[in-house]
């Protein structure tokens, strides 16, 4: 029914072809209208999205805190947490954030090799963090803590699991960008792509800052 009733509008298809044809003349640099704020729309949208993500992780953290100390069977946090190990992985993630700002800085300065190096460093540090997490998860599993063991297991794995999934997405994203940079498709002119991926990475990092303090150190 939809198409028939609204068929009045179909006459505009030709009109659209015309517009596209006009645009095709300028194909290499399509004219995008200037924005009301003068800012890049992708960057604004991404900050809005990160605002939304704060509520996602805020809710997960609140669930963890509400259920803290309510497990009816063990293992309990103090039985399994390995603070020195997690401190190292926290340090690794913090340093990866430093790598992000350096990579972006060098990309903008046109220093391709340094930008490639630091982008690879983000990926390596991120993968290291994931390795620590994989080790931690399997270790917990071996001492008898799973998703379904108790409320601690449920809340811990879901919270850190969602965080780990975000890190994984970040690693894949940066790998794609690294390949583009290597092939010369990511250049100072479009460094915004790396900037946005970097914002995402920092966001994942600040979520971990909260998790490390609220979940590990305040056990």
């Amino acid at each position: 029914m939809g198409v028939g009733v609204w068929g009045v509008r179909s006459g505009q298809t030709i009109h659209k072809e015309l517009i596209l044809a006009t645009a095709a003349v300028e194909h290499h640099h399509p004219v995008h209208p200037p924005t009301a704020t003068g800012l890049n729309t992708w960057k604004v949208g991404f900050w809005v999205f990160m605002g939304s993500e704060t509520l996602f992780f805020g809710s997960l953290i609140s669930i963890y805190l509400v259920y803290k100390g309510t497990s009816v069977v063990g293992p309990y946090p103090s039985d399994v947490f390995d603070i020195p190990l997690t401190t190292v992985s926290t340090f690794v993630l913090l340093m990866s954030s430093l790598a992000v700002v350096l990579a972006l800085d060098f990309l903008r300065a046109g220093r391709r090799n340094l930008a490639l190096f630091w982008t690879m460093m983000i990926i390596v540090l991120g993968a290291t963090f994931l390795g620590f997490q994989a080790y931690e998860f399997t270790h917990f599993y071996h001492v008898g803590l799973t998703l379904s063991t108790n409320l601690f297991g449920s809340t811990f794995f879901v919270l850190t699991g969602f965080h780990g999934a975000h890190v994984t997405i970040g690693v894949i994203w940066l790998l794609i960008l690294w390949v583009d940079m290597f092939r010369g498709k990511l250049r100072p002119e479009n460094s915004l792509r790396l900037e946005i991926a970097g914002l995402y990475w920092h966001f994942v990092d600040i979520v971990w800052i909260a998790i490390f303090t609220l979940i590990y150190l305040m056990e």
């Binding site: 704020t37 800012l39 604004v44 900050w47 809005v48 605002g51 992780f57 805190l65």
Partner: peptide, 19 residues
């Protein structure tokens, strides 16, 4: 630009209130 801060801090404020 301050607009980035606004669209981030406002939801973060709510997230902290949730917790």
């Amino acid at each position: 630009h301050p607009i980035f801060g606004r669209v981030f801090w406002a939801p973060l404020f709510l997230a902290v209130l949730v917790v």
